[in-house]
Amino acid sequence: MQYTTDVRIIRLMCTGRVDPTMIADAFIEGADGLMVVGCHFGDCHYITGNVQARVKVGLAVRLLDYAGLNPARISFSQCSSAEGERFVSLITAFDRSIRELGPLGTGDRLEPPVLKKKLHIARTALGREKLRWVAGKFTEFTTTGNKYGEKFTDHEMWRTLDTIIMDEMATHEILDALQSRPQAVLELARELRLPPPHILKYVLALQRRGLVGLAGVEGLSPVYRVIDQEAATAA
C-alpha cells in the first residue's frame, strides 16, 4: 500500500469543520490540489457533518471555478477508516489528474498573477454573510423547506448560489479596485472585464449601503471612491 509523497494530510475531527475559506487559503498559499476526505454518506461519525461539508466544498468549488481556478483541483471524496486501499486509489487518481493539469496557474482559466488576485477576492466572498447564509440554509431548504414550507431542489439551490457568487465576486472586486484609487464605471468595466451596466448596478448598490460615494465627475462620467476604508474592508 504505497502512494505519492506529494500529499500532506491535515487532520480535522470531521469534514463538517472544513470552512470554505480554508479551501481558498490552500490555493492562495500555492497548493496545486486539495482533497477533502470524509466518511461515507449515511455513515458520518458526526451524523451529518459530511452532508454540510458537501455544501461547503461545493460552494468553494463553484466560487473558485468562477474565479478562474480549474475545479478539478478540488476533490471531495468518501472513504472509511477501514478502507486503506480505497484511500490509496483516491489519492493516486487525484495525484494523476493534478499532474496532468500541472502546477497552479497552468491548467487554469487564468494566469498566475490574475488568478492569485481573484483567489483573494473569492476568499473574501467566502468569508462573508451572503454565501455563508445560503450555504447554511441549504439542507434545511432542500429537506424541510423554508419558513413558508417551500422546498427547493439541490439544483435550484446551486443555481441561487451561482447567482450570488457572480454578485459577490463583482461587488468585492469593485470594492477592491476602488480601494486602490477612485474610478469611473467604464474604467472599472475595462479592468474587471464586465459589462458597464452590470458594474453600474453593483456600484449603485454599494452606494446605497454607504460604502461607496461620488469622488467627482470626469468629463461626463461620475467617479466613485470608497467612503470608509475600514467598513469597505469588512464588507
Partner: peptide, 8 residues
C-alpha cells in the same frame, strides 16, 4: 470489501 482480498 475494499480491505478484502480483491480490494473490492
Amino acid at each position: 470489501s475494499a480491505s478484502g482480498p480483491t480490494a473490492g
